Simulated scan of single mutants.
Amino acid sequence: MKILVTGANGLLGQHLIRQLVEEGKFTIHATGKGASRLPYGSGNGVTYHNTDLTDFKKAQALVEKISPHIIIHAAALSQPNDCAADKTACWKTNVGATRALVKGAQKTKTYFIYLSTDFVFDGEEGPYDEHASPNPVNDYGESKLLGEEIVEMSGLHWAIVRTVLVYGEKVPGGRANFVLWVKEKLEAGEAIKVVNDQQRTPTYVEDLAKGIILVLMKHAKGVYHISGKELCTPYQLALMIAQLMNKDASMIQPVTAETFQEPARRPLKTGFIITKAVKELGYVPVKLEEGIRRVLHL
């Protein structure tokens, strides 16, 4: 079975491809910008394509050439501030590339799995299940919601996997996620300010990858919320990290989102209710403390 994974060089992409390789059932095609950061060659059943997915014709042609059974579209411009600063890049990456891949998938009749975000919600009534009505408050959320709509209206067999605040071990060339950022600051003895007026259900990247594989194995259709179970603020998460590392928690100062005056507004309370994924997919995430221990090698 041939699978095309976009965003292969990112945190999720690298962990997902490793798990797919370990399954031993797939021929994997991976796309990313620039050189491959994957530790696999063609001998592992992984073929890498350096492709700019915002080039509509190239993205569509790649799908038609590979003719995959499944596309897992994980590539995105996922930093809300970056999306606010460059709206054109945001929409070309999150909407245009999705439209191009869907166009190719319609010709190859490919099963399409689209990665989305809790930021499609406004944060007024979280945590959310799959029946909640989206209402994004920033460009990132708006672009991802439009991507969802493109997939839903494609006529393809599709699944949308939404997730929240993904953390995990750093991958080659990847940027630090929240857990690693806190770890690095605490190890350096630097004081940090962390928001305490937003709530999320943090997601261990290994769990997210497993959830996606459960979706594809069951050929599931519809929207699935894949995250951790435990709701917390980033400040509370940072305190847990400090405690597990035996570091001085007084170095972490709780603040509100207004402290940073970021260009992109964040929803206050998101997080997910994952009952559907648990019942229909058999998805079981690790506890938050266990996920952090694994990332910190504790």
Rank of each mutant, 00 (worst) to 15 (best):
residue 4 L to S: 07
residue 6 T to S: 04
residue 10 G to I: 05
residue 10 G to P: 01
residue 20 L to V: 04
residue 25 K to C: 01
residue 27 T to K: 12
residue 34 G to N: 14
residue 36 S to P: 08
residue 36 S to R: 07
residue 36 S to G: 10
residue 39 P to T: 02
residue 44 N to A: 14
residue 46 V to C: 07
residue 46 V to K: 02
residue 54 T to R: 02
residue 58 K to Y: 04
residue 64 E to P: 08
residue 65 K to A: 10
residue 70 I to R: 01
residue 71 I to S: 02
residue 72 I to E: 06
residue 75 A to I: 05
residue 79 Q to W: 14
residue 79 Q to H: 15
residue 83 C to Y: 05
residue 86 D to P: 05
residue 96 G to S: 09
residue 96 G to T: 12
residue 101 L to P: 00
residue 111 Y to I: 07
residue 114 Y to K: 08
residue 121 F to Y: 10
residue 122 D to M: 12
residue 122 D to H: 11
residue 135 N to K: 15
residue 135 N to V: 14
residue 140 Y to L: 13
residue 141 G to R: 01
residue 142 E to I: 15
residue 147 G to D: 07
residue 150 I to N: 09
residue 152 E to T: 12
residue 162 R to L: 11
residue 170 K to T: 13
residue 171 V to N: 09
residue 175 R to E: 15
residue 177 N to V: 15
residue 182 V to G: 11
residue 188 A to Y: 08
residue 191 A to H: 13
residue 191 A to M: 14
residue 192 I to N: 07
residue 195 V to W: 06
residue 197 D to K: 06
residue 206 E to Y: 06
residue 211 G to S: 04
residue 218 K to M: 03
residue 232 C to L: 04
residue 236 Q to S: 01
residue 238 A to R: 03
residue 245 M to E: 00
residue 253 Q to F: 02
residue 253 Q to V: 10
residue 257 A to K: 08
residue 276 K to V: 02
residue 276 K to W: 03
residue 279 K to Q: 10
residue 283 Y to R: 00
residue 284 V to F: 12
residue 289 E to K: 09
residue 289 E to V: 05
residue 290 E to K: 10
residue 291 G to E: 00
